[in-house]
């Protein structure tokens, strides 16, 4: 398939004149040579499972028996009958739109602070990255539960500050989700790292030139740093959006979706349907609806990127 596309396009008219080396050096051909590993991997390992999961979404499939085709039944149930579905969807949207901007903001601020060269910056970078290293293990779940317990560290700290407080932060349906958002913000390390490497890519001479022109700190930030950083910001936004919708472990191991479904995220409900309730067909339908939503949001981001993302190579 790959061969056809470039043979017919670039190969035919020039066949006799170009050597193999020349053909390979043609940008149109070279592009395929470079992305060939991805195409092979995608076709071999992803395409089939992806198509299958799409197919499953039109079936009743409990994994143990063969799937039974039921048309759009799953989608109908999802949109019109499952009262939990929209609740779960709303909770997830809330989480994504609260945690992604906050997390990015924290990551950006810290990255700006840490890009400064000092003897300790390596140390700081490591320390600020540490929470992201411990990831979403069971240990983090226990830790978070204990910190925000009614008799936990946070409440004792508040007590020391003269605000006696016995709130079960993770036990109340109005506060629990914010504890998970806080956890996401606390683990801003990966975005920070990307911002840091983005900052490092900005040519130093731009700043030097600006200094000579007498630009102040603010001027430098808005005229150089921010525009040059937009590719990283764009990347982080898209990526956090995608991973935000897939948030699973935090809810699954810390709150188990409770209290009163206030932290039952889309991916958790999808997983429960697929494996705990043995309705993989329904789970797949949920997955593809999520892909549609995330895909649309991503598309919007991509469509707007030429308005605000600055690429050195294109600018």
């Amino acid at each position: 398939m790959k061969k056809d596309s470039h043979d017919s396009k670039s190969g035919k008219p020039v066949k006799s004149r170009k050597t193999l080396r020349q053909i390979l050096c043609d940008e149109k051909v070279a592009g395929y040579v470079f992305i060939l590993p991805f195409i092979i991997g995608f076709v071999a390992f992803m395409a089939l499972p992806m198509l299958l999961s799409f197919g499953f979404s039109f079936t009743r499939y409990n994994i143990l028996d063969s799937p039974v085709f039921i048309g759009l039944e799953n989608y109908k149930t999802m949109f019109f009958e499952d009262s939990k579905f929209w609740r779960v969807f709303g909770v997830t949207m809330y989480y994504v739109f609260a945690s992604v901007p906050l997390r990015l903001l924290a990551a950006l601020l810290v990255a700006l602070l840490l890009v400064r060269k000092s003897k300790l910056s390596g140390f700081y970078r490591s320390v600020y990255y540490l929470p992201s290293i411990i990831g979403s293990s069971v240990a983090v779940a226990i830790l978070w539960k204990r910190m925000f317990a009614s008799d936990g560290v946070i409440n004792s700290l508040l007590g020391l500050l003269g605000i006696p407080c016995g709130i079960a932060w993770l036990g109340r349906s109005d506060t629990a989700i914010w504890m998970l958002i806080l956890l996401a913000v606390w683990q801003f390390g990966s975005s920070m790292l990307i911002f840091l490497s983005g900052l490092k890519q900005i040519p130093v001479n731009l700043y030097e030139a600006a200094t000579i022109d007498g630009a102040g700190w603010g001027m430098k930030f808005f005229k150089i740093t921010f525009p040059m950083l937009t590719p990283s910001i764009f990347f982080n936004t898209v990526n956090q959006l995608i991973t935000g919708f897939m948030v699973f472990t935090q809810s699954y191991i810390i709150t188990q979706g409770g209290p009163r479904d206030s932290t039952r995220f889309y991916a958790v409900y999808m997983y429960q349907n697929s494996f705990t309730y043995n309705k993989l067909g329904y789970g797949c339908a949920m997955a593809w609806f999520m892909i549609l939503v995330v895909g649309l949001l991503t598309l919007i981001l991509f469509k707007t990127q030429n308005k605000w993302v600055y690429y050195e190579s294109e600018g």
């Binding site: 198509l51 299958l52 197919g55 499953f56 079936t59 063969s66 799937p67 085709f69 048309g71």
Partner: peptide
């Protein structure tokens, strides 16, 4: 979708 279902049924 139908074709897929057939395919996955035989696979699964």
């Amino acid at each position: 979708a139908l074709a897929l279902t057939g395919m996955l049924a035989s696979l699964a």
